[in-house]
Design a protein around this nucleic acid. Structure first.
Lengths: 216, 216
DNA sequence: GTCTATAAGGTGATAGAC
DNA sequence: GTCTATCACCTTATAGAC
């Protein structure tokens, strides 16, 4: 059973459909507003407006603003982890580095840019949120980092990644290139596919023409 | 005359030294606090505490919280632009792409990670700040983007950058890899030089070993 | 489940003494 | 130049009617 269900489902499965729908509406509204304005600048009234209810009604579903934030964060992170893991698992066992990187980058970017605001909210505002909330998200984040760490380490051991590459630093540089897309990329103005393709070019081969390779 | 002076200097050069020093202290405090907590979550009391004055005294130097933010942003952006431009100008006219990229990446990262909180505040919280403030920063940001656009375009025309690279997308991916360093890199835990070196490896050649290059 | 009313506290900003 | 005192407003959260 995937972890997803624990995070995505409402606590009680037997709750009436209306309640579940409203809860989802609130979460959607919160994710979008947090993403756009940041956590502190978002008021419960902003969220309530977007969800078409009164601010006080939020407390029927969530104990506090922080609780709501945690729910949004959990869903957002779990979605990336699931998407990247699932698509990678679908690859043949003898898939190349290029194929594995390509699939992972594409899944990551799609979650970030197309699949709603939960993931992008998590990525964008994580650094400016109460430390207590950050701490609770660490396990899930490390889980995801671990996936990439393994992917890159295996490839370096097999000789597909050059030995002078520092995998710890490189992983964060790659995350940066991808995550920063929330700040500028607009799926309506250009296909995510093309961004993913360029990101693969960068990560695998860089931008320099052959024969003009850097010495050291 | 560099634009710097207009932004860095106090309005009136004839103001007593004490006033100028306090102003600088406030700016330093604001940059650090904005950077760490975000704009909305930072109160004027936070800044006043860090600057060792009372909140009301801030209004002797700045009209409003937003004014203070604009001042911090302006300084931060101007510093990157100046640093990158100056160091690039010091290169010989026939410098290679690798040399130019290396110098630009190093200067950018040093401003971001070593040279104080103004630049990192700008980079980190820009997306979650009132739209009116963002708009005022656009000219300076475009100025910097223009520098990179030229650098990359010249290199692609001369054949140093492969033709299948989309320079618009690639520039943003590179910015992302670099800017994201504010979220994880700690100059006390590892030299910025090493991060810059790895970033150059990534940008110029990627991570793949030769002979394992991606087909398409 | 959702609402109105309201509490309790903090926020940016101003007035005016020193 | 810096302070204390204060204002008007907005925020999260709770109480209790419906």
């Amino acid at each position: 059973m995937p972890k997803t269900s624990a995070v995505l489902a409402t606590e009680s499965v037997r709750q009436p459909a209306k309640s579940t729908a409203t809860r989802r509406k609130i979460l959607d509204a919160a994710a979008r507003t947090f993403r756009d304005k940041g956590y502190a600048a978002t008021t419960l009234n902003d969220i309530a407006d977007a969800a078409e209810i009164r601010a006080a009604s939020l407390y029927y579903y969530f104990r506090s603003k922080e609780d709501l934030l945690e729910a949004v964060f959990g869903i957002g992170m779990q979605r990336v982890v699931d998407a990247v893991r699932q698509r990678s698992a679908a690859l043949p066992a003898n898939a190349t580095l290029a194929q594995r990187i390509e699939v992972a980058i594409e899944a990551h970017l799609e979650m970030l840019l197309q699949q709603g605001d939960y993931t992008s909210a998590n990525i964008r505002i994580f650094g400016q949120v109460p430390k207590s909330v950050q701490r609770k998200q660490l396990p899930l984040r490390q889980d995801y980092a671990e996936f990439w760490r393994e992917l890159l380490e295996t490839a370096q051991r097999s000789g597909e990644i050059r030995p002078e590459i520092d995998l710890g630093i490189m992983r964060m540089l790659i995350f940066g290139a991808l995550n920063w897309c929330t700040e500028w990329a607009d799926p309506k103005k250009g296909p995510v596919r093309e961004i993913a393709r360029q990101a693969c070019l960068l990560v695998l081969n860089g931008i320099a023409a052959e024969g003009k390779l850097r010495k050291k």
